[in-house]
Amino acid sequence: MKLGLVGQHIQKTQSNRLHTWLGQQYGLDVSYELFDMVLDDTPALAALLHRLGEQGYRGVNVTHPYKVKAWDIVTERRNTPAGLGALNTVVFEAGGIVGTNTDCSGFGRAYRAAQPGQNPGRVFLKGTGGVGRAIAFGLAALDAEHLYLYDEQAASQAQLLADLQACGARASLVAKADVEDCIRGCDGLVNATPVGHYSTPGLAFAAELLGGQRWAFDAVYTPIMTEFLQQAERAGLSLITGFELFLHQGIDAFEFFTGIKVDPEVARRGVSNV
């Protein structure tokens, strides 16, 4: 079974290791290729996906910065909220390209494992692109008390707000002048930007703003302990690492590719969280 990953700056991903490991455990001969490339627009991504389907790939994962573009390419979406607007997993079928978003479902699984029985509360979400949209809808499904959205791209955050409110979620935008006060008053902090990734190092939230919140999540998992999570740990917050999202979204993706139910502990043995 031929699988792959389409994105930028993906050479340190463990997706190939996870999917080939799961193939071995469940009796499938799986190959997983990395397509680390710059695609100028949605038609370029569509052309690549159609070409991979013609070359016999069963499916591919789609990561930054192509998740939103993938939404309009597929012919069918499954197991994904109608307003989410981003996809990270596609399969090639006779009738076309079918997509889903396992970031959304994977975040829900990761949160419930880390914070069993606890509502996410008031959450500050930084970054409203592809992964931010998935996490926002995942938090809405967890019945978060309120989502505070912030992104330097005004159109992106406004669109996510409209889509969340259309689905009945409680959310609002945060003006730049109000960011610090809002962060201090929240229960959870989410970094859904690339800041902290090995290719874009930095601190997603200023250290002096941390403390008093209950939990922190960083979508970045290369490295796993980003500067943000290191500072959050020092401030006493409970951590959900990007590795946990990676693991659970990968399990959901493998199940989408194959129809095989995966034991999470089997998956965890195949990849490293250090």
Score class of each variant (00 low, 15 high):
Trp215Thr: 00
Tyr150Pro: 01
Gln165Ala: 15
Met1Arg: 04
Phe124Trp: 05
Ser156Lys: 14
Val38Pro: 00
Ala140Leu: 12
Val195Phe: 04
Leu160Ala: 08
Gly250Ala: 03
Tyr111Arg: 03
Ala82Asn: 09
His248Ile: 00
Gln153Pro: 00
Gly53Trp: 10
Gly108Cys: 15
Ile73Asp: 04
Pro264Ile: 07
Leu142Val: 13
Ser238His: 14
Arg170Glu: 10
Gly7Lys: 03
Asp36Trp: 11
Gly23Arg: 10
Ala235Lys: 13
Ala110Val: 02
Arg170Asn: 14
Arg77Asn: 06
Phe256Gly: 00
Arg77Ala: 08
Val190Met: 04
Asn88Lys: 12
Glu76Phe: 06
Leu203Gly: 00
Ala46Glu: 15
Ser15Leu: 05
Ser15Phe: 03
Leu164Met: 12
Pro120Cys: 07
Arg268Cys: 09
Arg133Glu: 09
Ala86Thr: 10
Gly129Lys: 03
Thr102Asp: 09
Gln230Met: 14
Pro116Lys: 05
Leu5Ala: 01
His197Lys: 15
Gly127His: 08
Ser15Gly: 08
Val220Phe: 10
Thr241Leu: 07
Asn16His: 15
Glu152Val: 13
Asp40Gly: 13
Val90Trp: 05
Val220Ala: 04
Ala86Tyr: 02
Thr258Val: 08
Ala144Trp: 10
Leu245Trp: 07
Asp218Arg: 07
Phe254Lys: 01
Ala192His: 01
Ala235Glu: 11
Gly108Thr: 09
Leu18His: 11
Leu239Pro: 11
Asp187Arg: 04
Val30Asn: 06
Thr258Asp: 06
Arg112Met: 09
Gly270Tyr: 08
Val174Tyr: 13
Arg269Cys: 07
Pro194Arg: 12
Gln14Met: 14
Val91Thr: 15
Ser15Ala: 13
Glu265Pro: 03
Thr63Arg: 12
Met225Trp: 15
Ala171Thr: 06
Arg109Asn: 01
Gln115Glu: 11
Leu49Val: 08
Arg122Asp: 09
Thr102Val: 11
Pro194Glu: 09
Leu247Ile: 06
Phe92Val: 02
Ala134Glu: 03
Gln8Gly: 02
Leu125Lys: 02
Arg234Tyr: 06
Thr80Lys: 04
Gln159Asp: 14
Leu209Pro: 09
Gly250Asp: 00
Val190Phe: 06
Trp21Glu: 03
Val30Phe: 07
Phe107Gln: 04
Asp41Ser: 14
Asp103Ser: 12
Gly59Met: 10
Gln55Phe: 02
Tyr66Asn: 01
Ala155Trp: 01
Thr20Gly: 11
Ser238Lys: 15
Arg214Asp: 06
Pro81Lys: 11
Met1Pro: 02
Leu49Trp: 05
Arg109His: 09
Glu244Ser: 14
Ala216Ser: 08
Gln213His: 12
Gly129Asp: 06
Leu245Tyr: 05
Leu22Asp: 03
Ser156Ile: 00
Leu49Cys: 06
Gly53Glu: 10
Ala86Lys: 05
Asn88Gln: 10
Ile240Arg: 07
Pro194Val: 05
Asn16Ile: 00
Arg234Phe: 07
Gln249Leu: 09
Val60His: 05
Glu208Met: 07
Ala155Thr: 14
Gly196Arg: 02
Asp252Gln: 11
Asp252Ser: 12
Gly127Trp: 00
Asp218Phe: 05
Leu160Cys: 06
Met37His: 01
Leu203Ala: 13
Asp41Thr: 06
Glu233Thr: 14
Leu164Cys: 04
Gly236Gln: 13
Gly242Met: 08
Glu208Phe: 11
Ala94Trp: 07
Ile260Tyr: 03
Ile224Gln: 11
Leu161Thr: 06
Gln249His: 08
Gly56Ala: 13
